[in-house]
C-alpha cells in the first residue's frame, strides 16, 4: 500500500479548511494528527461517541457498586457482630463504601476504555505523521490507494496552502 499523502500545517484553521475542502470534494477517508485538541480534530471524527463511553463508565460504576454490596454484605455476615446497637446489615452506613466503589469503578473503566480505544484509533496512521504532531505540526493524511493520478493531482491542489506536501 502506498504511503498516504501528508500535508503539514502550523495553523489549525488552515488545516480545518483543507479538511473541509477535501470533504466537499468527496474525499471522506481523511485522517490527521495534531499536537493539541484543536477544533479540526472533530472535523474527521471518531466513531465512538460520548454516549458509548458514558455507557461503559456507567457499566464500570455498576460493577463497582455490585462489588461494594458483595463486600459489605459478605464481610458483615461472615462473623455477625452487633456494634453500637446497629443492625449487622446497616445500609445507610454502607452507602459510603457503595458510593466510593461506584465512582472508582466508573473512573477506572473510563480510563481503561480510553487507553484501549486510543490504541485502536491510532492504527494505520503513519509514523511520520505522529512525529510531525510531536514537532508541533498538524498533519492531514489522505490515502492514495485506489486513486487515479488525476484524483491525486486534484487533492494536491486542494492542499495547496500547506507548508509541505509529501510524497
Amino acid at each position: 500500500m502506498p504511503d498516504p499523502l501528508m500535508a503539514l500545517y502550523d495553523d489549525p484553521d488552515a488545516a480545518a479548511n483543507a479538511v473541509r475542502k477535501l470533504h466537499a470534494r468527496g474525499v471522506a477517508d481523511v485522517r490527521l494528527t495534531s499536537p493539541a485538541a484543536y477544533p479540526v480534530v472533530e472535523e474527521t471524527g471518531h466513531p465512538l461517541g460520548l454516549q458509548q463511553l458514558g455507557w461503559l463508565a456507567l457499566g464500570g460504576g455498576l460493577l463497582g457498586l455490585a462489588t461494594a454490596i458483595a463486600l459489605v454484605t459478605y464481610g458483615s455476615l461472615a462473623e455477625p457482630l452487633v456494634v453500637g446497637g446497629k443492625p449487622v446489615l446497616a445500609w445507610p452506613a454502607f452507602s459510603v463504601v457503595m458510593f466510593e466503589l461506584t465512582m472508582l469503578g466508573a473512573g477506572l473503566t473510563n480510563f481503561v476504555a480510553v487507553i484501549f480505544f486510543s490504541a485502536l484509533a491510532r492504527r494505520g496512521v503513519a509514523k511520520s505523521a505522529r512525529l510531525a504532531a510531536a514537532q508541533g505540526h498538524i498533519a492531514v493524511l489522505v490515502p492514495l490507494a485506489q486513486r487515479s493520478a488525476d484524483e491525486v493531482a486534484q487533492i494536491r491542489a486542494l492542499l495547496g496552502d500547506a507548508l509541505e506536501v509529501s510524497p
Partner: peptide
C-alpha cells in the same frame, strides 16, 4: 505516554472521556 500519538481519533476520544472523568472526580 502509552503510545499516545495525537491522531484525530485519539483526540476525539480524549475530548469525550475527559468530561466523564471530571464528572466522576467532582462528587468524589
Amino acid at each position: 505516554s502509552l503510545g499516545f500519538s495525537g491522531t484525530d481519533g485519539e483526540w476525539s476520544l480524549y475530548e469525550k472521556a475527559y468530561p466523564i472523568f471530571a464528572g466522576v472526580v467532582i462528587p468524589l
